[in-house]
Design a protein around this nucleic acid. Structure first.
Lengths: 165, 165
DNA sequence: GTAATTGCAAAGGCTTTGCGGGCAT
DNA sequence: ATGCCCGCAAAGCCTTTGCAATTAC
């Protein structure tokens, strides 16, 4: 079992949401890139490279992990993916078209929950201005523990090797 | 030249601020640990392991980088240091006794500016509660660019290899 | 047809660790 | 005295990269 949902994001022509973005940016679409684009479009979480490789391999074995590394880097440079670090020493990836949002990390399970940026944009901008800076970007990360009354569905966390707190 | 200030934090008996914390926690104080404690006490920035090693070696060459790695890990476990990740693939360290604060990273120079947590604590706690979590920790990072009118003293940034944005 | 992409395996960067000798308590 | 700590060097983990073969345009 795995956690991703089949969000059925590709249109009837079979072109996934992320693939469309790749085409818009003029990327040469190989079978491997199409495959990664599909996996990303179908993901609702924040997979790392190994997980992307695992999901892609399950659909078509003719892909190597080196290509996954090269592709996520390419998509990051093109602004299609954002690289995240939630601790654990591995980069995790987040499609940029989901809009600006932040993350709450469940410290017990490692699970990541997204939430929208509402009142923070202005506050962050004000703080930066007070320090003499124009705000270019900001990130807010919360680390939390489920309320005791609904502590169901816990997954044993894989402890971070060199992540930050 | 380097950026750290000689904050002269050790008392007249020569015991540095961080060393005092180590003793309080019952750590065995070797020459190397004392040295690292002194370097940390004298630092006002967020050095990485290599930088700590460089500063320590300058004071006494009888220390290896392995010991620096082992010591920062130990101090982190004891709650004396906090591990940070500002991108760039290397961990950076922050004495915990400076109190809860956040960071603004100058995207042009890589320099890090601390600022106090004032209005955020409550807001972060409220967001977590809305999602069904007790807040354990939170971090806010701003990425900014100096106002054009005082763009002096810029340092060429070392670009991150695999940092997050 | 041609430049870009891929797979493989080797290398790179940061960090941890096994081991024998040394040191603080 | 003895259990922890150190330096050294090797290994580990994640990621990048050189090269020859393949592929998209």
């Amino acid at each position: 079992m795995d956690m991703r949902a089949s969000t059925d994001d590709q249109a009837e022509d079979g072109v996934s949401r992320i693939e469309r973005l790749c085409i818009e940016r003029g990327l040469k679409m190989t079978g491997q890139r199409r495959l990664i684009a599909r996996v990303l479009s179908d993901s609702v979480d924040h997979p790392d490279v190994e997980e992307l490789y695992r999901r892609a391999s399950a659909l078509d074995q003719r892909i190597s992990i080196a290509t996954v590394y090269r592709t996520v880097r390419l998509l990051e440079e093109k602004g299609i993916l954002e690289r995240r670090d939630f601790g654990g020493g591995r980069a995790r990836f987040d499609p940029a078209d989901r809009g600006h949002h932040h993350h709450l990390i469940d410290v017990d399970s490692g699970r990541v929950i997204e939430f929208a940026d509402t009142e923070h944009e202005a506050l962050a901008r004000a703080i930066a201005a007070r320090l003499g800076f124009d705000l270019v970007d900001h990130r807010l990360e919360l680390f939390g523990r489920r309320f005791a009354d609904d502590a169901a569905a816990k997954t044993p966390a894989r402890r971070a090797r060199r992540g930050s707190a």
